[in-house]
Write a protein that binds this DNA or RNA. Structure first.
Lengths: 119, 119
DNA sequence: CTTTCATATGAATTGTTATTCATATGTTAT
DNA sequence: ATAACATATGAATAACAATTCATATGAAAG
């Protein structure tokens, strides 16, 4: 029995039949955390700007910083976050590290978001 | 001249030619904020769970809370956030308020996110 | 190998946000 | 009207995250 409710409203909708279905169809807790974490990465203006910069071209850290008028340190911290989420990659070129978009997934997700806020 | 750099690395890549292009193609600051705010909404496990619940069926607040084993208050606060972002809508039915997905945009965005973390 | 340049990182600070608790609002039924 | 129920909300607390500053790492050039 699904009697592990922490509260008990007495409303009589047809929703209760869905409770078990919800619990069955809900992705694993781990996936839900990963998913929220991924969107968190998109949920910061600085990181969004960095991604827009990389839409134009792969670029080294200092030029990204220059483009956005922000400090190298702030950008570097955020690049690390983007990299951890596998949204960007990097490679060395002489003294510089060049960052680039990992795949077109990023464009799609940001594009969908833009669609939503502009409609 | 774009000499409003706050720092000056001397790296000599071909990136500087992109700086002006970046500034031209970058969406308005306001849109970037709205976009980040939208993704922030997706960036919380509780809200993701609520959306997954609503994937199954429109539902009243107390049944959403029951489904997720969380308090009515916590759910209500998050429903407000989701509503403000126009991801969900609501309607009254007797004593209850029924919440539902605003459109299939939500499914698409979450779907894209899932694709990314599962690949 | 020493200096310079590009990037990364740790600690501290500040701002933001999710949840809880208590209570208010508003609807329905008696 | 009053009682019971469903939902919303404000204030407080606690956890988290973005930026800054100072400094460390690490490659390259002399």
């Amino acid at each position: 029995m699904s009697e592990d409710k922490i509260q008990d409203c007495k409303c009589e909708h047809n929703h209760l039949e869905f409770v078990d279905k919800v619990r069955h169809d809900m992705p694993a807790e781990e996936h839900l955390y990963d998913l929220a974490d991924l969107f968190k990465v998109f949920g910061d203006t600085t990181r969004i700007k960095i991604l827009y910069v990389l839409f134009e071209s792969e670029m080294c850290v200092c030029d990204i910083a220059d483009s956005l008028g922000m400090t190298q340190s702030a950008i570097s911290h955020q690049l690390k976050v983007l990299k951890q989420s596998k949204l960007i990659g990097n490679k060395r070129d002489g003294k510089s590290i060049i960052y680039y978009l990992a795949d077109d997934h990023v464009r799609t997700i940001i594009g969908m978001g833009m669609d939503h806020i502009l409609e």
